[in-house]
Design a protein around this nucleic acid. Sequence first.
DNA 1: TTGTACGCGTTATCAC
DNA 2: GTGATAACGCGTACAA
Lengths: 346, 346
Amino acid sequence: MQKTGQPTINDVARIASVSKKTVSRVINRSPLLNDDTRKRVEDVIAELGYIPNPQARALALRRNFLIGLVHDNPNAQTVLNVQQGMLEALHGSEFEMVVRPLDRGSATMLEDLRHFLERQRLFGVLLMPPVSENDSVARLCDAIGCRYVRMGSAVIDDNDHMVASNDREAVRIATEYLIAQGHRRIGLVAGPHGFRSARERRLGFEDALGAAGIALPRSMIADGNYTFESGLAAAERLLDLMPRPTAIFSSNDEMAAGIIHAARQRGLDIPRDLSIVGFDDTPIAAHVWPPLTTVRWPIASMARSAALKLIAGADDGSDLVEEPSLFLSTLIRRGSVAPPLDAETA
Amino acid sequence: MQKTGQPTINDVARIASVSKKTVSRVINRSPLLNDDTRKRVEDVIAELGYIPNPQARALALRRNFLIGLVHDNPNAQTVLNVQQGMLEALHGSEFEMVVRPLDRGSATMLEDLRHFLERQRLFGVLLMPPVSENDSVARLCDAIGCRYVRMGSAVIDDNDHMVASNDREAVRIATEYLIAQGHRRIGLVAGPHGFRSARERRLGFEDALGAAGIALPRSMIADGNYTFESGLAAAERLLDLMPRPTAIFSSNDEMAAGIIHAARQRGLDIPRDLSIVGFDDTPIAAHVWPPLTTVRWPIASMARSAALKLIAGADDGSDLVEEPSLFLSTLIRRGSVAPPLDAETA
DNA sequence: TTGTACGCGTTATCAC
DNA sequence: GTGATAACGCGTACAA
């Protein structure tokens, strides 16, 4: 025992009457080991409660036992869901989660990330959208030799490096639901330019309208940036239209909450005068009034899967099951959708 | 240069024609150093872009350059605000943030934390409520030799180990505001037992009512656990009362959102039929309808200050300004409070 | 003021 | 199969 109180590999080696290297082999599950020696060493390890020192391992392996969460996502709830999914995957493993926000739009963003990765020698990083959509970031990770998995709303990398949801299809289905309710004048509050999720969701919306033969004038699309305020502003524009849309699809829940606000300020009743569908299914969706019909984005499960991909093969070796790479979003029907008052027969 | 591409302390020493130790002294700002040598070494460091390897330092110093966020807080937005405050403080420093959720109520919670701290050798930890209120946790940190700062709603430790808000006073002021509006039948939705914040806020509520000579029957207090659902359930009980309270103070915003929901389900208009005041000022407060009058809890600033306390003296040495330990919460007046309809003259 | 030798706890090399 | 011995990159006695 050292003065720190923690037993070291030397203690184990001495007591088990073997060399350090043999202990190391036991720890790292080297296949070429006599079963007797292995057993003896394992017993001593258990008896001493020995745990390998992560700092020393990091130095020797030139690699830390940390998984990074790299993101520049403005949505608090989304970030937290991802964290929870990651933590769940990492729980009980030797890995810890370190969070690293990135300053989107900063010219030195890539340099900052490089410094971070080179210095910390992370085992791997989980890339959240929208930075995950940046190919140069992925290439940087590759070049540095840091494992990575990208999360996103469309498949833009191979299975080992990607966990995606099918936003386009999910929004198409949600929009078809609106159409099936009788809506024909349907507005879209889109997400910010440059976000793949925004693009995919918009495409799904257009797919559904196109398939139903419904025209989509440019005025029916209002841009937002995933914030409550932008949703409110977008709704103002949409609700000024004559005739007014009878339904709005919002590219995320937070903007949908803004839309509800705007509608209420005009004395519009939801869903009687206006139907709304959101995307994400964050807690806010269930807590606004009326409860929001929305698309459930399984972002926590995706993050969990991504983290497992990251550490696959690194631990017990017990998990050889392939983690899923594509997740399906489902429509959650609550109280914010009803048939339009002026149901036209198309 | 090593094969890794990163220059090491040896490279610097060799090129600057000094010993490793001298370079080490420059890095660690040892006072006893010839200015010439220092300058020469600093030049080489800049030229090479040398950055000390954190893993090697961690091993030698038996201490990592990581700050832990230890929490068992159920409120997502609160956790995220704290993270943002921490990150802000850590930005540009050599420290990274690792997040460690704790399983409250778990019998092995303390053991889990001990393992975590002993293994990772964190530089320090930020303790969030409610686990921060647990004295054995603080003693554990002390025993292990890990710096810590506790966040909370009351001062329960010395300045170096505590950043607190004055919830009791803030709630007293908020309640006085309600009383000044003419309310006499005021309900309280309390926080969960065992949370110091819940206790302080309740005490502040009782202080105000007592000072105004208003009786507080037990039926006017409903317990919640800081969740939306619990707020909704508590409101059900309060609104069943005859006569009904004309105002409710909610111990946090999320429960206040639940109260709004319950009121709306009964066709009650806010603030006409019922005034509501919340606590926290999370985004939800501004996004519900009507916008919630609430107490702004400066949790992000508190976390920032706590993190700075943690790393004080560890970095440049440039910051010798004492970080504040007590933060004041302020009342934010929005749309959820109005005088009662049946304004009695007390 | 500066340098030498060694320790931190682990993994890797290459013998046996 | 197993064991000396040398990395890994930095900090600290102690000496000079």
